[in-house]
Simulated assay, not measured.
Amino acid sequence: MAQESWKTAYRSFYYEHAPIPQDLTLDPKSTALLIIDVQNAYLTESSDPLERGRWEPFMARMHTQVVPNIKRLIETARARAMNVMFARIACQTPDGRDRSLSQRKPGFNNLLLPKDEWASQIIDVLRPKPEEIVVLKTTDSALTGTNLRLILRNLGIEHVICVGIFTDQCVSSTVRSLADESFDVTVCHDACAAATDEIHDNELKSINWIYCQVASTDETIGFIC
């Protein structure tokens, strides 16, 4: 799947016979790079050996592929004077009572990430520059409950490149929200991750073509004129 061109990869049943698209061209002035939820909490190994084993493939994907590719995209965007933006899950209250329902249900999503604590911060290797915009969210979508929509409009952004975690949760929710607001979106499949590759691939098939275009990091860098 990952070896195919963006023009043919990750096609769902709905788009099996859609026409081959023309090449994409992204103007740096109207394009933003949005890094979603690559936070310390999600790259910290569990103290439980069973959980650590379950998440080992995810951690390997993050460290060997996703984080290096996001770093390349950030460096490219900065070099071309593109807006680099970040979204992170971070509650305003220490006890997390301001979180949305999706972020306080029992289980994996029930993470308490107060905004000033280490766990909620973007990982050091991708640290935002002081002038780069970071939005805090207590929902899955980076548009819901934040002023990101207004910020993008004020900056004259028409196209958003989305990367980060988790593909099937906050990335997908953000992509769908952006598409509903008539932003063009590109998702870099090798700069995102879900808990498993199967979940990751299935979600990319669901959002490709209708909500975004799914492409590799190399292909996306090539789109930027």
Score class of each variant (00 low, 15 high):
residue 61 R to W: 03
residue 20 I to D: 09
residue 88 R to G: 03
residue 104 R to E: 06
residue 104 R to D: 02
residue 60 A to S: 10
residue 219 E to A: 15
residue 37 D to F: 01
residue 104 R to A: 00
residue 205 K to C: 14
residue 59 M to R: 14
residue 144 T to A: 09
residue 12 S to Y: 11
residue 76 T to R: 07
residue 178 L to V: 13
residue 34 L to T: 03
residue 117 E to L: 06
residue 190 D to Y: 08
residue 76 T to F: 02
residue 171 V to P: 04
residue 38 V to R: 01
residue 117 E to P: 04
residue 148 L to G: 07
residue 39 Q to K: 00
residue 87 A to V: 15
residue 34 L to M: 07
residue 122 I to H: 08
residue 65 Q to L: 11
residue 36 I to G: 04
residue 68 P to G: 10
residue 189 H to V: 07
residue 63 H to K: 15
residue 216 S to V: 03
residue 143 L to G: 06
residue 153 R to M: 11
residue 172 S to A: 15
residue 47 S to W: 02
residue 64 T to V: 13
residue 109 N to Q: 09
residue 56 E to P: 02
residue 8 T to F: 05
residue 81 A to L: 09
residue 161 I to T: 06
residue 179 A to G: 13
residue 62 M to G: 03
residue 57 P to W: 10
residue 32 A to L: 03
residue 180 D to L: 06
residue 204 L to W: 03
residue 120 S to D: 02
residue 141 S to A: 08
residue 159 H to D: 09
residue 93 T to Y: 11
residue 16 E to L: 15
residue 3 Q to L: 10
residue 83 N to L: 09
residue 187 V to S: 08
residue 29 K to Y: 03
residue 56 E to W: 11
residue 157 I to F: 08
residue 47 S to C: 02
residue 146 T to A: 12
residue 10 Y to H: 09
residue 124 D to K: 05
residue 113 L to F: 11
residue 172 S to W: 01
residue 11 R to P: 01
residue 49 P to I: 03
residue 25 T to W: 05
residue 171 V to S: 02
residue 12 S to I: 11
residue 67 V to F: 10
residue 161 I to F: 04
residue 181 E to D: 14
residue 65 Q to M: 14
residue 10 Y to E: 05
residue 38 V to T: 01
residue 170 C to P: 04
residue 81 A to P: 00
residue 198 E to Q: 12
residue 174 T to S: 15
residue 184 D to V: 00
residue 41 A to F: 06
residue 165 I to Q: 08
residue 123 I to M: 03
residue 83 N to T: 04
residue 171 V to E: 01
residue 122 I to D: 07
